[in-house]
Simulated scan of single mutants.
Amino acid sequence: MKAIAIFFLNVLQNILGMTFGLLFPRKTKRNSYKALSDVDKVKYLEKRRQCKGYKKQWLYYRCREEGLLEAYNELFKTELEKQDSGTKFSFGKYRGEFVEDIWESDKEYVNWLSQQDWLAQYLDESDMIHELLLLEEENQN
């Protein structure tokens, strides 16, 4: 008799649980890895890499396996790769600085520099300086 009562109580509990489960679904949403965007997948993998203590190469190879290299390069391009598109001074007080940045901050120095005879031995910088001076003259006219 006791076993039958326990059986019916379990059936009643299951019926009530299913009924309330259908009427009041849980509010929590589980983020599926597949539903994430490529950038979010790479961010997730980076967090996982840091938590597990894996080397940085692990993230690159994992992204390569899953076809996420574009998102990986977008997120983790080094600053040097992003800034390496300009010409840097290889001499003087602005050594290592971009010519365009110095042009914006110290035009007098660049004008003085363009009048120096010895600038010809630094061909890359002199070409860039002459281009900036020509652009400035065109803008003034």
Rank of each mutant, 00 (worst) to 15 (best):
Glu81Phe: 11
Lys82Arg: 15
Lys82Thr: 13
Lys82Gly: 14
Lys82Tyr: 06
Lys82Asp: 04
Gln83Trp: 07
Gln83Arg: 13
Asp84Cys: 13
Asp84Gln: 02
Asp84Thr: 06
Ser85Val: 14
Ser85Met: 07
Ser85Asn: 12
Gly86Arg: 10
Gly86Ala: 15
Gly86Met: 11
Gly86Phe: 15
Thr87Phe: 03
Lys88Thr: 00
Lys88Glu: 07
Phe89Ala: 11
Phe89Trp: 00
Ser90Glu: 12
Ser90Gly: 11
Ser90Asp: 12
Ser90Tyr: 00
Ser90Met: 07
Phe91Thr: 03
Phe91Arg: 02
Phe91Gln: 01
Gly92Ile: 02
Gly92Met: 06
Gly92Lys: 07
Gly92Gln: 01
Lys93Tyr: 03
Lys93Gln: 14
Tyr94Lys: 02
Tyr94Trp: 14
Tyr94Gln: 05
Tyr94Gly: 04
Tyr94Ala: 01
Tyr94Glu: 02
Tyr94Pro: 01
Tyr94Val: 02
Arg95Tyr: 05
Arg95Pro: 03
Arg95Gly: 04
Arg95Leu: 04
Arg95Glu: 03
Gly96Tyr: 07
Glu97Asn: 08
Glu97Arg: 10
Glu97Gly: 05
Phe98Glu: 04
Phe98Asn: 07
Glu100Val: 14
Asp101Gly: 04
Asp101His: 10
Asp101Met: 06
Ile102Phe: 02
Ile102Trp: 09
Ile102Cys: 08
Ile102Ala: 05
Ile102Thr: 13
Ile102Gln: 07
Ile102Arg: 10
Trp103Ala: 11
Trp103Tyr: 12
Trp103Ser: 06
Trp103Asn: 08
Trp103Lys: 01
Glu104Met: 06
Glu104Asp: 11
Glu104Tyr: 09
Ser105Val: 09
Ser105Gly: 02
Ser105Gln: 07
Ser105Trp: 03
Asp106Tyr: 01
Asp106Lys: 01
Asp106Phe: 13
Asp106Cys: 09
Lys107Ser: 06
Lys107Trp: 05
Lys107Arg: 15
Glu108Gln: 13
Glu108Trp: 13
Glu108Pro: 00
Tyr109Ser: 08
Tyr109His: 05
Tyr109Leu: 06
Tyr109Ala: 09
Tyr109Trp: 08
Tyr109Val: 01
Val110Cys: 08
Val110Trp: 08
Val110Ile: 14
Asn111Asp: 10
Asn111Arg: 13
Asn111Ala: 07
Trp112Cys: 05
Trp112Asp: 15
Leu113Thr: 07
Leu113Ala: 01
Leu113Gln: 03
Leu113Tyr: 08
Leu113Trp: 11
Ser114Ala: 15
Ser114Met: 15
Gln115Lys: 15
Gln116Asp: 02
Gln116Ala: 08
Gln116Cys: 01
Asp117Leu: 01
Asp117Cys: 03
Trp118Ala: 13
Leu119Glu: 08
Leu119Gln: 10
Leu119Phe: 13
Leu119Cys: 04
Ala120Lys: 05
Ala120Gly: 05
Gln121Phe: 15
Gln121Ile: 10
Tyr122His: 10
Tyr122Ala: 05
Tyr122Thr: 00
Tyr122Lys: 06
Leu123Trp: 12
Leu123Ala: 11
Leu123Thr: 10
Asp124Trp: 02
Asp124Arg: 00
Asp124Val: 00
Glu125Phe: 12
Glu125His: 11
Glu125Ile: 11
Ser126Gly: 00
Asp127Gln: 09
Asp127Phe: 12
Met128Asn: 04
Met128Trp: 12
Ile129Val: 10
Ile129Ala: 07
His130Pro: 04
His130Asn: 04
His130Thr: 09
Glu131Pro: 03
Glu131Trp: 14
Glu131Tyr: 08
